[in-house]
Write a protein that binds this DNA or RNA. Structure first.
Lengths: 149, 149
DNA sequence: GGAATTAAATTAACATGTTAAGTATTCGTT
DNA sequence: AACGAATACTTAACATGTTAATTTAATTCC
């Protein structure tokens, strides 16, 4: 009944399927460490910076502000992340990994890396590099469209 | 502090970012039609088949069964989808698009297609085909890993 | 042919996604 | 200094994601 392209051939569905295939491996591992996928994203970003503002965390973790807000209060309650005042702007706050947070990062990191390397090895580093390049160009093309419309 | 790859270079993050870039265009359009992204996926799948079981819908829409269960009750309440009995297995039920559901599909379809074509045109059909191919191979590689482990 | 298993969906419980509204603070202007 | 606008988050409300538990019906096996 439809002239619309097969749903399986739509770009967002392909991207979703590929991501789910990968995450199906990561989620059980993270679960063993007591973390969700999103909590791990936050910890991972914070592990590479001494401190970050919420807005920076939003940008780097690809989480929406309301989600991050909830996740941060959770991670604070667990003692993995600490919040401190921003000198000069009371609206902002600075987030840091606590010692416990750093310990968690060091515990999960190798397990995470192992899964990545497994995927890389099976898929091929060369093809993976091509895929990254294409995805970056896709983002660029779409963002360019936003400026034009 | 970290030897872990930059989070921005991780495959799931790249896939997520690319998908979000695309969906940022689709969601407002769907919202005007009173649909969520996921509801539209269900309608789109059903538009191509006279009837489908829940398990088939799960597979083709890339939704988890609990999510689909809620979405279907919503779409039934809206009169877009109808449920009928499965002859021979009372556990299953058959889903069909109602006349209103088909009308909705015909209303949204062109808007959806226009956005796809815009992306295709900007990104390039050739590169898009390469991207599809790589994503399919990635899925294959990951699923192969599942059988082995 | 009846008890134990398996299978298909749904429900439950909690976390996140998404949009809109709200809050507090800062900035810009006069 | 003071007002309005903009900024940085947070809350709210509802939809979906995720895992586990339930429910109901079919299947298996003795």
């Amino acid at each position: 009944m439809s002239d619309l392209r097969d749903i399986q051939l739509s770009l967002p569905m392909q991207l979703l399927q590929a991501r789910e295939a990968a995450m199906a491996h990561f989620r059980p591992m993270l679960r063993k460490h007591g973390l969700t996928e999103q909590q791990w994203r936050v910890i991972r970003v914070l592990a590479n910076e001494p401190t970050l503002e919420v807005s920076e965390l939003v940008a780097r973790s690809l989480l929406l502000a309301p989600s991050l807000s909830r996740i941060l209060s959770h991670l604070e309650a667990e003692g993995l992340v600490a919040r401190s005042a921003h000198a000069g702007d009371q609206r902002r706050s600075l987030l840091t990994l606590t010692a416990a947070g750093q310990k968690k990062f060091r515990a999960v990191g190798p397990d995470s890396e192992a899964l990545y390397e497994d995927i890389e090895a099976r898929f091929g580093r060369k093809k993976l590099a091509t895929l990254y390049q294409l995805l970056a160009e896709l983002n660029e093309a779409i963002e360019l469209a936003e400026e034009t419309e």
